[in-house]
Amino acid sequence: MTALPEKTDKKLGLVIDLDTCVGCHGCVTACKGWNTQNYGAPLSDTDPYGADPGGTFLNRVFSYEAQAEGQPAQTVHMPRSCLHCDDAPCVTVCPTGASYKRSEDGIVLVNEDRCIGCGLCAWACPYGAREMDRDAGIMKKCTLCVDRIYNENLPEEDRVPACVRTCPSGARHFGDLGDPDSDVSKLVADRGGYDLMPDLGTKPVNKYLPPRAKDTLNTQPLEVIADEPQGFLGWLDKALEKL
């Protein structure tokens, strides 16, 4: 059913540290790899070696530049994927019931056997988290690696989403954001984790940790030092003028 559960037992989600992320796209590759070979239809690559390559991804890293007046610019890498919203508009608009939010852990999933590929859920999502797979004709989205996190065939350290497992800088954290005592919840509280576009009322589960304050550079820009040259330079200046 596309009615949202009133309450979910857990709120599994990601906490992404924008201070630590170096923008290596490792999570993008790990996500594509795992989700192409496992749950649901593979993530297609169209015309991969041709002139107009394209394809479906569940996670993409964008880079932004922020600059305050009179300050040096700062680069922030922002991985973007489904935020598994508590009030997920993509779920309620779905006409077929293919989109649903699980009451046990809050993961938002697509039942590919019911999806008609109308694309309305992608229109309803403010975050661009859903991509239609153009080969399969069905909507793809982050599953929070539902086929890893409960998978007892995997070693315990691998039972986290592929993007979290692969992140070389430790910028991605996975856990229950509904439990105030979980590591991820403490991290969010410590670092002032925030929601993306909270005014749209989607109540995202995933949180972003803002970049830490940078040291301020105390050096002034270089002054012009030879406006009125003195000493040897003064003599040279005058000598050259006379030539």
Binding site: G23, Q67, M78
Partner: peptide, 26 residues
């Protein structure tokens, strides 16, 4: 992006090198 407190924010690099569904559609 929630980064407005850092100053003026502009996109430096998009998360894709090719066109994709989100770009084409929205």
């Amino acid at each position: 992006t929630g980064l407005a407190h850092l100053g003026e924010v502009r996109m430096l690099e998009s998360g894709h090198t090719a066109r994709n569904y989100v770009v084409d559609e929205m």
